[in-house]
């Protein structure tokens, strides 16, 4: 692809307590692309996302981002439970310092902030819940509020850590629709860590299969479901027979 990549990983490796989680990871993601990172549990998908977001430092390699306006949607929402939905969603506007001036954006009135929060909540299909606390919401609603919080600062890169885990199939479909909607609205580049075949099928442009600390397969989502590669086939058919050993899953 001639276009300059939005995210580029070069020779990334990560260890915990002397154990290598992954090594020699090279990955390039184009602007506005949605990349799904898949693999069995414990293969390092979420760790890779944390490395890209800057929460973890890799042992080797570099992460190059074309834009530092990045956000991460956490697996269990990670909403601030002592704040209301309004305070959670408006958090980045109230507390986050401007990248250039290092001063928080305090120049919005509460009415302006409420209108902006309402707009983002509307985008993820939520109505007037601004004064509720996270523990008053269902799991799916919490997830959607965390989407709204993530897109409040119009990020150029959005990382999703298992966005459909723990949700029923209908709620999962809804979340997948929101990922597509958010991408269309914000033109952001996205990485989605998932186990969910439906998410891969409906959302991802490309798929990267991680296992044994390495990228074992990469291609488009259509190629993934038709691939003869033993790793891709085993994952796509949810089979116990294949190179990915059950004891490591």
């Amino acid at each position: 692809m001639a276009e300059q990549p939005m995210i580029q990983l070069e020779n990334i490796s990560k260890q915990y307590d002397g154990r290598t989680i992954f090594g020699g990871i090279n990955l390039s993601i184009a602007p506005q692309e949605i990349m799904a990172i898949i693999g069995p549990s414990g293969c390092g998908k979420s760790t890779l996302l944390r490395v890209i977001s800057g929460l973890e430092t890799p042992e080797t390699g570099t992460v190059k981002l074309a834009d530092n306006n990045l956000t991460l949607v956490f697996q269990y929402s990670a909403l601030f439970d002592s704040l209301t939905v309004f305070e959670n969603v408006a958090f980045s506007l109230i507390e986050t310092p401007d990248i250039n001036t290092h001063v928080a954006h305090h120049n919005y009135s509460e009415e302006q902030l409420r209108a902006m929060v309402a707009e983002k909540l509307e985008l993820v299909g939520l109505g007037d819940i601004q004064d509720l606390y996270p523990n008053q919401l269902s799991g799916g609603m919490q997830k959607r509020v965390s989407f709204a919080r993530a897109i409040m600062s119009d990020p150029k890169i959005i990382l999703y850590d298992e966005p459909t885990s723990g949700l029923d199939p209908m709620a999962s479909t809804m979340i997948e629709d929101y990922i597509l909607e958010v991408r269309n609205q914000t033109q952001a580049t996205s990485i989605v860590v998932t186990h969910n075949l439906s998410t891969i099928h409906r959302v991802a442009h490309r798929v990267c299969l991680l296992y044994g600390g390495k990228i074992q397969w990469m291609g488009t989502s259509q190629e993934f479901f038709e691939s003869d590669n033993s790793y891709a086939r085993q994952f796509a058919h949810a089979s116990l027979q294949g190179p990915m050993a059950l004891r490591n899953i």
Binding site: R50, S53, G54, L55, L70, T71, L72, F74, Q75, Y76, A78, L79, F80, D81, S82, F91, S92, E95, T96, P97, I99, S153
Partner: peptide, 20 residues
């Protein structure tokens, strides 16, 4: 207890991602 719970529930990571 409050900050430990925030830490294990990724709320502190969320702060960092939001550049706070």
């Amino acid at each position: 207890a409050e900050l430990a719970t925030m830490t294990i529930q990724n709320q502190v990571d969320a702060l960092k991602v939001l550049h706070v």
